[in-house]
Design a protein around this nucleic acid. Structure first.
Length: 103
DNA sequence: GCATTGACCCGTC
DNA sequence: TGACGGGCCAATG
């Protein structure tokens, strides 16, 4: 694995309980603000040992459809950490103004 | 080493 | 928390 993904995993592991971060935010912390998409790829492959549920897109939306875990599980995990998750249809949203992690 | 692939982002309408 | 289009860039085969 490249150095970028290693740093990305480390940054993701730093997200505190009760907060969320966006893909772009993590990418920026790794020095590549334009590589937000990579974060998704990393999580899709090796999310098992990371707080993957705390990483969402810039709209505050849970952006998975169905991978190892369903979006509904991610919503539940966030809810258990004290994060308010709103459901609209089959999609889930988090209030970024309230829960966005600010390093 | 080239082409394709994304759990995305941002400007614009 | 619209919808749409174009651009990004590391990882993968």
């Amino acid at each position: 694995m490249g150095n970028f993904s290693s740093r990305a995993k480390q940054k993701i592991s730093l997200i505190p309980k009760g907060k969320v971060a966006t893909y772009g935010q993590i990418a920026a912390l790794c020095g590549s603000p334009r590589s937000a998409r990579m974060i998704g790829q990393i999580l899709a492959r090796s999310a098992a040992d990371l707080p993957w549920q705390r990483v969402i897109n810039s709209a505050g939306r849970i952006s998975i459809v169905n991978f190892s875990y369903p979006a509904s599980m991610q919503a539940k995990l966030l809810d258990q950490e004290g994060i308010e998750v709103k459901q609209k249809g089959s999609e889930y949203f988090v209030d970024l103004g309230k829960y966005l992690w600010q390093p």
